[in-house]
Write a protein that binds this DNA or RNA. Structure first.
Length: 454
RNA sequence: GGCGACGUAGCCAAGCGGCAAGGCAGGGGUCUGCAAAACCCCCAUCAGCGGUUCGAAUCCGCUCGUCGCCUCCA
């Protein structure tokens, strides 16, 4: 398997440290509802995890909740609710969204506010070794102590300074120094520390959680491209300085960002479509096909047209699993070939668009064999298995609950009576009216079937 | 200004040195009482210009256009 490593900029052979792949996927700051940009990141990394498991790896994956930071504090104040109340609500919503998107659960979801002792331990360690210094109750990381600062972002300190957007902050020795521990402001939540009351800076929580739950060296650390700098760059600085071990992460993976129109979808710009909004219009499978239909490192633009196209594609895959498997002849499907193509695609830096193409090809082949009267159960099982690797559910829309099924069946029976009597106008009228109610009919050789669609 | 990525059919999107995957839409067939579904066939020379090579969408250079990061952000 090969993975593109952001640090080297190269596609590298994937060799994990041990039996278990240690993986960390940057989570959210639970300040508001998650949007489909988040969905894009987490669906991509979900497919990656699923494939690693499919390939026989054990995977231990951790995802943080950064439940304390400026944004949450301000937002909670604006809404007039407590910080924990806001965070709890958004974390619960996030889990609901992830479940709805069929993103498999992480092994652990640590929270920044519950990792304070580990965070203080790291900050203290950094101060002891001279990598960080206290100033006015805060503690800053001394960026100039590192030779390789900027490596992940492929930038040097000088180049960053040239950006000239950095505000020098009086307490800092160097404008690029970043805060690892923030002195408390009045009215804000705070914890006791050797430097007085304060709270963690951004970045430090991820170092604390990954070191604590996965060890000094991770195999894979993932997140959106917008996290490369400064977030992940700073994580490397803190973690490696604290443990004295390199590398902190063997493979850095970053997904491209979702755009809406010509801009990145982002909370600060406000051009957001929430996961719930998307799910109210499109099926999970459509959303996953839309996202996995583009390579994880490429940017993707959200559009109703693209989602609708994905929805139709999803319907085709589903249809292939729903069709009956009547024939009794032996199988002439090249299952090994299909599997090989699928794995070659995924082995190559998780090329999900190509893997999806394999599924669509398999679907066409399956339908063809069915039309020729072959037993297609094996092909269907393969399609089901590979779809699950990509996290597709391929579940049809539920038939209506309870009673109405019987009435629909009654109408179909009546209509088929009319058809036999060649009363086609009446039969077509029933079909049309059922369609208006969201019930779609198909007359096949084996009888009439129906399904509910929105 | 610095760093990075990208520009492939009507739309979305793989391929990254050897005769252009896949999805959606479109056209033509088969099947069907008609629909629907499904199957078969058709539909691009890869932003532009120049170079390297037996051979380039794929490598190099320039031009044009777009996006991301450098500040909170998946």
């Amino acid at each position: 398997m090969k993975i593109t490593n952001t640090l080297s900029g190269l596609k590298e052979a994937f060799i994990p440290q041990g039996e278990e792949v240690k993986m960390y996927v940057c989570g959210i700051t639970p300040q508001s509802e998650a949007h489909i940009g988040h969905a894009m990141s987490y669906i991509n990394f979900d497919a990656i995890r699923r494939y690693l498991r499919f390939r026989g790896y054990k995977v231990r994956c951790v995802q943080n909740f950064t439940d304390i930071d400026d944004k949450i504090i301000n937002k909670a104040a604006a809404l007039g609710v407590s910080i924990s109340e806001l965070a709890e609500k958004n974390m619960a919503d996030f889990m609901t969204d992830m479940d709805a998107l069929n993103v498999s659960r992480m092994d652990l979801y640590p929270r920044a506010t519950q990792e304070i002792p580990k965070i203080i331990e790291i900050v203290q360690g950094l101060v002891d070794k001279g990598f960080a210094y206290p100033a006015e109750g805060s503690v800053y990381f001394r960026v100039t102590r590192l030779e390789n600062y900027g490596n992940l972002a492929h930038r040097t300190l000088d180049q960053m300074m040239a950006g000239a957007r950095i505000e020098p902050g009086d307490e800092k020795e160097n404008p690029m120094d970043f805060v690892v521990w923030k002195a408390a402001k009045p009215g804000e939540p705070s914890w006791d520390s050797p430097w007085g009351k304060g709270r963690p800076g951004w970045h430090i929580e991820c170092s604390a959680m990954s070191l604590r739950y996965l060890g000094d060296t991770l195999d894979i650390h993932g997140g959106g491209q917008d996290l490369i700098f400064p977030h992940h760059e700073n994580e490397i600085a803190q973690s490696e300085s604290f443990t004295g071990k390199k590398p902190f992460v063997k493979y850095w993976m970053h997904n491209g960002l979702l755009r809406l129109g010509e801009e990145k979808m982002s909370k600060s710009i406000g051009n957001i479509i929430s996961i719930k909004q998307a799910l109210s219009k499109y099926s999970v499978d459509a959303i996953r096909i839309f996202i996995l239909g583009s390579h994880y490192r490429s940017p993707l633009t959200y559009s109703p047209e693209a989602l609708e196209a994905a929805e139709k594609g999803a319907a085709r895959l589903r249809q292939a699993l729903e069709s009956s498997t009547s024939g009794g002849k032996s199988i002439s499907l090249d299952t090994a070939g299909v599997l090989k193509r699928f794995m070659e695609s995924m082995d190559d830096d998780f090329n999900t668009p190509q893997a999806l193409a394999v599924l669509f090809d398999l679907t066409r082949e399956l339908n063809r064999l069915r039309d020729e009267g072959e037993d297609i159960s094996q092909a269907q099982n393969l399609l089901k298995e590979l779809s699950e690797v990509l996290g597709l559910t391929l579940k049809g829309v539920e038939k209506t609950a309870g009673g109405s099924d019987q009435f629909i069946q009654l109408l179909l029976d009546t209509r088929n009576g009319l058809r036999q009597a060649k009363q086609y106008q009446l039969a077509d009228d029933i079909r049309k009216r059922l369609e208006d109610l969201g019930v779609f009919i198909e007359d096949t050789a084996g009888g009439t079937t129906w399904k509910a669609r929105r």
